[in-house]
């Protein structure tokens, strides 16, 4: 067995319709170029994308699950950030 394991890469694909690159999964590859080749085979066999980004998994910094509260709870009380918070009379028309 080969002692050296290929590093892990996170794969992001941009679909046909101009949306953002989206994380689709991860894979092993010896370098960035091979990671793109593999990503082509693993994640775009049915024309799922027009552009691929690959990032070494070790370079991703993630928020910690225990920070969920402090990070995301503050938005909970700010419902006025949504347009539906405001009642606009029908007479005004579409807004």
């Amino acid at each position: 067995m080969s002692k050296k394991e290929w590093p892990l890469w996170e794969i992001f694909i941009r679909g046909q319709h101009g949306l953002n690159h989206r994380h689709v999964g991860s894979l092993h590859a010896p370098d960035a170029e091979m990671a793109i080749n593999h990503a082509r085979d693993v994640y775009t066999r049915r024309k799922e994308g027009v552009s691929i980004w690959v990032v070494p998994s070790s370079e991703i910094t993630a928020s910690s699950p225990s920070d969920k509260g402090p990070l995301f709870d503050p938005a909970e009380s700010k419902v006025y950030r949504h347009p539906t918070f405001f009642d606009i009379p029908d007479e005004v028309g579409h807004m």
Partner: peptide, 12 residues
Amino acid sequence: GEWFRDGLSAYA
């Protein structure tokens, strides 16, 4: 496939 995997690692 070992020599091939190792070759790619060495190249990288």
